[in-house]
Each structure stands twice: as C-alpha cells, then as structure tokens.
Simulated scan of single mutants.
Amino acid sequence: MAATCASANTDSAARALVPHRAIYDLKLKDASERSGIEGMFGRMVYEFTGSACTGFSTNFRLVTKIDTGEETRLSDQQTTTFEDMSARQFHFETKSFTDEQLDRQVSGDASKAESGVKVEITQPDGREIDLPASEFPTGHMLDVINNAKEGKHFFEARVFDGSENGDQALLTTTVIGKQQEPQKDDADADKAGEFSRTPFWPVTIAYFNEAAQGDPMPVYNMSFKLYENGITRDLTMDYGDFTLTGTLSKLEMLDKGPENCSEPR
C-alpha cells in the first residue's frame, strides 16, 4: 500500500510540473584567492517541456565571462536531456566550449534496472557502465517536492544526470525549509509572473562524489526557492572556490503536453 501511495504522489506531482523557460542573470557572490577569479558574470537559460505522459525534456545553457585579472575567457555549457519516467530511461547530451572552441562533448543513454542503472556512452567513446540504483533529475525533483509537501525537511538520494563525463552518479543531501510566502523585499518574486505571490520552499541540495574518501566536501551546493510546479528562482550555486547567484530575469510559460496519457502524443 505504501508503494502504491508513493507512486500516486509522484504521478500527481509530475502532472503539476509546468513547461517553462526561465532566464537567470548570474553574478559572482564571492571567490577564494585559490580560484584565480577576480570577476564573473553571465546568464543561464533553463527550458523544461513535456508531460508525465510524453516524458520531460530539458534544454539548459550556462554562459559565463570569467576575469582572472590577466585574461578574460568565455565559458559556454549546453545540455539537453530527455527523461521518460514510465520507461525508466534517460538521454543526455552535453557540450562545453571555452572561447567558442569545443572542449568536451558527452552523450549517452541510461536506463533503470532492478540491479541499478546501466549507462551507454556514445560520445566521446562507446562504452557501458553499471552504476548503483539512482534517480534521474526530474524524478529527483519530484522527490524533493513530495518530501516538501509531506513536511519532511531532510533526505538523501543518489542522482545520475549525465554531467561531467557521464560515467558516475552523485550522492545528494537535500534540506527543505518550511513553506514561505514571498515578502515585499523578495528580490525576484515579481519576475515570477502569475506565481509571484505563490508560496515556495527554500531548498538546498549538496552533491557529493561517491568515490571521495573520509568526510568529503560537496562537489557543489545549490540553493533555490522552489514552487510546487517545479519553477525555481533566487539561485545560489556554490562550487567551493567560488559562488554564483542567479536572479530570475524572465519567466515564460510554454504549452503543456496531454494530461490524459491515452491522448495521442
């Protein structure tokens, strides 16, 4: 019965997710001397489409200009994913550029099995990897929302998102604050349009390398304000040596897929 309820909650949360395109203005909050960064700013575009019936697609682009004091370089990361929750499959493609020159390209497919997650990497080389049981990104976001709605403030999960070389999952710890109403001085609440007065949860997710020994530090932390429909704003991305903040500058709602899974896709 518990498993059935959990499945129903996940399905309900998945149907509540709204397709949207969010644009965030990024700026440097702080940087250690070790980072070699004196200045940094940029923009992030996150596009989320699809439905629980058709699967969910994301198009993500993060462009930053980095000033080291001696030179300025342009970093451009582009990621496309597709997650079919019913088929338990995930496709990922990532391209990273520095000063418009391609540094890295990774693509592949992952599928859940009883024994864990099987990853087939097609770029830059063909190989197969077996990983422990993991959630894919949209499934993990639904877990965050379900835990928030149930008043659970902490949980752990292993997540595979195809990042870096696409060959490892990351351990995550998620801290969820109490649901809040936007305040008058809430910086980017007005950019959330029809959701500007909607309650949200403050969320922080720490990502850890599973292979790290001892008492490891997170690879990075991400904090944000999360709505029940999956929209986020007021981002803080802490990479250890430097921290970026992301302010929602534009939110556009996109067409929603079929609500009834018997409808043609």
Rank of each mutant, 00 (worst) to 15 (best):
1 M>I: 11
2 A>W: 04
3 A>K: 14
6 A>K: 13
7 S>H: 12
8 A>S: 13
12 S>G: 05
15 R>G: 08
16 A>T: 10
16 A>P: 00
21 R>M: 03
22 A>K: 07
23 I>M: 10
24 Y>S: 08
25 D>P: 01
26 L>H: 07
27 K>H: 13
27 K>F: 05
32 S>Y: 05
33 E>C: 00
34 R>I: 03
38 E>L: 11
39 G>E: 03
42 G>Y: 06
42 G>E: 08
44 M>Y: 08
44 M>L: 14
45 V>G: 11
51 S>E: 07
53 C>R: 09
53 C>S: 11
54 T>Y: 04
58 T>G: 09
59 N>L: 04
65 K>Q: 11
70 E>Y: 10
71 E>L: 03
71 E>C: 00
72 T>H: 08
74 L>Y: 13
80 T>Q: 13
80 T>H: 12
81 T>Q: 09
86 S>A: 13
88 R>D: 13
89 Q>L: 02
93 E>T: 10
93 E>A: 13
94 T>H: 02
96 S>T: 13
96 S>K: 15
100 E>R: 12
101 Q>G: 01
103 D>E: 15
103 D>Y: 03
106 V>N: 03
108 G>H: 07
111 S>T: 11
114 E>T: 11
121 I>E: 06
121 I>M: 12
122 T>G: 03
125 D>C: 01
127 R>C: 01
127 R>P: 00
128 E>A: 11
130 D>S: 14
130 D>E: 13
131 L>D: 10
132 P>A: 14
136 F>Y: 11
137 P>H: 11
140 H>C: 01
141 M>Y: 08
141 M>P: 01
143 D>F: 00
149 K>N: 13
149 K>L: 13
150 E>T: 10
153 H>L: 00
155 F>K: 13
156 E>T: 14
158 R>G: 08
158 R>D: 10
163 S>M: 01
170 L>Q: 07
171 L>P: 02
175 V>A: 09
175 V>C: 03
177 G>T: 06
179 Q>T: 05
179 Q>S: 12
180 Q>C: 02
180 Q>G: 05
180 Q>R: 13
182 P>T: 03
183 Q>Y: 01
189 A>S: 14
190 D>N: 06
191 K>H: 12
192 A>Q: 10
194 E>P: 02
195 F>E: 12
200 F>A: 12
202 P>C: 05
202 P>T: 07
203 V>W: 05
209 N>L: 08
212 A>N: 12
215 D>P: 01
216 P>W: 10
225 K>M: 06
225 K>T: 08
225 K>P: 03
227 Y>G: 10
227 Y>L: 15
232 T>G: 14
234 D>N: 15
235 L>K: 09
236 T>E: 15
237 M>G: 08
237 M>I: 15
239 Y>C: 02
240 G>I: 01
245 T>G: 05
253 M>C: 01
254 L>C: 12
255 D>M: 04
261 C>S: 10
261 C>K: 08
263 E>V: 00
264 P>V: 04
